[in-house]
Computed example of a mutant assay.
Amino acid sequence: MEYKDYYKILGVERTASEAEIKKAYRKLAAKYHPDKPTGDESKFKEISEAYEVLSDKEKRAMFDQFGSGYQNGQHFEPPPGFESMFGGGQAGGFSDFFESLFRGQGGFGGQGFGGGYGGRQGFRQKGEDQVVKVLVSLEEAVNGNERNLNLQIPQADQQGRVFQRSKQIKVKIPAGIKQGQRIRLTGQGAPGIGGGANGDLYLEIDLQSHPLYRVEGDDVYLDLPLTPWEAALGTKVQIPTLKGKVNMSIPAGTQSGSKLRIKGRGLGKTPGDQYIVAQIHTPLAQDAETQAFYQTMAEKMPFNPRPHF
């Protein structure tokens, strides 16, 4: 039988609200109603079927879980024993696809959507995997941490109806984790169908911006402000890193924009490096005395920084 994507039929996203679904249905129904000049009975039935499913929270939940792996118009391959379990036919004027999910003999009967869903035998399907983004600081990414997270997790009641509930999960963030990597929590995803196993929950790492550091791949960059005399004469500076402070010698004659490297203080299981970028900051000549000092420097240290112009 042919799979039907009810979201595509109504022209809405899978995340559409009830109001958006109703609005889309009314617009299309008004256009394709058989009594209208633009009417199309086949199209109208298809629209009505899509609304029948997406406007019902329980039917929508089952459709989302069972049908997410298919595309509109794709041939629907039912599991072994599916036809005898779910039945077929066009009762009520709906498609075979609808009937196979929601109406068949030995299925819902008078128990409603939830009762039949929970009571079927033979047909099992693993629940969908879920992905949740988790903000992680650079310090946590380098050193690891244990966090208690409050997440919205899909659950199913005894009748198989799916709902969201808040759940606190203790998660170990391993040292060396990087942007975009995922932590897998087995069986913490959406519930399975017909007693099938739960899906998995994946925590996708999103590195938090930092007031001092910026990240490029596995390397970490830190801008180091220096006075002109520190850069000219050289100095020693205590440098912050994600694994504690490091004493570093700044060589004499350091120019603004030059880079110094601290090996192994970056990100990843095999850590990248931390680069120190020199930024020379010039004090303001705010009074006559400092202005005279700069004038003396100009006379005694003539220097043209733009010979290439």
Rank of each mutant, 00 (worst) to 15 (best):
D96T: 12
E140M: 15
F94A: 04
G88H: 05
Q291A: 14
G116M: 05
L28A: 14
S95T: 14
K8D: 12
R265Q: 15
A292Q: 13
I153Y: 05
E58R: 08
K243G: 12
A175Y: 03
F82G: 10
F97D: 00
L260D: 09
H75L: 12
D35K: 12
K27H: 02
I205K: 09
A231R: 03
I153C: 10
L54W: 06
Y70G: 09
S258C: 01
V162K: 02
D287V: 11
E140C: 06
N247E: 12
H33A: 15
A298Q: 12
V142Y: 00
T186S: 13
T235E: 05
I250W: 09
K4N: 08
K178I: 11
I193S: 01
E230A: 10
G106I: 08
A156T: 00
Y51H: 13
M1W: 01
A190K: 09
Q71C: 04
D35Q: 11
Q159Y: 10
T290A: 02
E204D: 11
V171D: 07
Q74T: 12
N143V: 08
S68T: 08
Y6Q: 09
V142T: 10
N72K: 00
G194P: 02
G116F: 05
Y202L: 09
T38G: 10
P154G: 10
A231E: 07
S68C: 05
T241C: 07
F303Y: 14
P191V: 04
V162Q: 03
S55M: 05
F94W: 13
S258Y: 02
E140V: 06
Q286N: 11
L149E: 14
L267V: 06
G268H: 02
Y117S: 10
Y7G: 01
S258H: 05
Q130P: 01
F94Q: 11
N198L: 01
G109W: 08
K23C: 01
A232M: 12
L212Y: 11
P307L: 01
D56W: 04
K4R: 14
S55I: 06
F44K: 07
G189V: 11
K27Y: 04
D40A: 03
F303C: 07
E13L: 10
P174K: 06
G87A: 10
Y202N: 03
Q111S: 15
E204C: 04
P302W: 06
Q179P: 07
H75T: 13
N143Y: 03
Q274C: 13
S68N: 15
F98S: 07
G189T: 10
K170R: 13
I262P: 02
P191L: 03
G187F: 01
E128W: 01
G73N: 04
V237I: 15
L207W: 04
A232V: 10
F309W: 05
V134P: 06
G264R: 12
G115L: 06
